[in-house]
Design a protein around this nucleic acid. Structure first.
Lengths: 137, 137
DNA sequence: AACTAGTTTAAAATCATTCTAAAGAGCCTT
DNA sequence: AAGGCTCTTTAGAATGATTTTAAACTAGTT
């Protein structure tokens, strides 16, 4: 199977029509490498690959991929959106000083006790963000 | 001690000059009631109290209070900033559907194991956000 | 090839937040 | 109480990420 067909299929399974731009973005983001991207950094990657996708579509695609579970939104500040290509269950270190986000392997955080969700609700996800700072600051 | 003098002193201790607007906002937010506010909701409270503080000052004050440890910023989405008047160590439930934030008592979450901070860094804070959704959705 | 619904586009619009320059107010000194 | 110095506040402009718009395009179907 060609890479293009592979990602087209992946998008179809996610309920997304495999358009040229979505396949291009999937090829860049969903290759298994774990990293964190922004609308801006993704646009740079697209440009570096000799392609062009309009700004609106970059935003739409990031949102749609997230909605479809192909990406995960990481919440550490309010300046701009961050997306994680690793959708497995894991947590993050965040250093505000340098706006640096680092993955924490799943097993390194153990939640021994969780509260029950409020009545009529169920737990969808548990996000742990450990804020760190350099020692001499 | 008058309430005004009380909050003026509190601000001085936090390293903030007790101006009329900062005392007014402290009186509204730092009375011990635990709640979550936004720049918008705070502006409404100020107006409801028959006062007026410019938009820029509302934002500045929220940031300064947070910096001074009088408020805590809560990160659950990227739409606008949320502040918690409860600065004690505790975590949150977040229901995205209704943009609803609910406190979790400190003792209801037990972190049995935390990873060591990366070299040269130390842990400043650990935030746990439990995303919930209503069962029939 | 033709059709239709979903998608992309560039540009305009939105909206929270920050910045600006001028006016005002704490607060220290006399 | 007046003077003065610095920090604050103000209204309005500016910023910047994100969303919306309306028109052009395309994937998938007939």
């Amino acid at each position: 199977m060609t890479p293009k067909a592979h990602f087209a299929e992946k998008l179809r399974l996610a309920g997304l029509r495999p358009t040229r731009q979505r396949v291009a973005i999937a090829t860049l983001l969903l290759d298994g490498r774990h990293r964190h991207v922004t609308a801006d950094s993704l646009t740079e990657e697209i440009t570096a690959a000799g392609l062009h996708v309009s700004g609106g579509t970059v935003y739409n695609t990031l949102n749609q991929f997230t909605e479809a579970g192909l990406l995960r939104r990481v919440m550490v500040h309010n300046d701009y959106s961050l997306f994680d290509t690793n959708t497995d269950h894991h947590h993050h270190f965040y250093e505000a000083e340098n706006d640096q986000l680092v993955d924490i392997p799943h097993d390194d955080v153990i939640l021994a006790q969780l509260p029950a969700a409020p009545d009529g609700h169920e737990i969808k996800a548990v996000d742990v963000v450990i804020h760190i700072q350099s020692k001499n600051s």
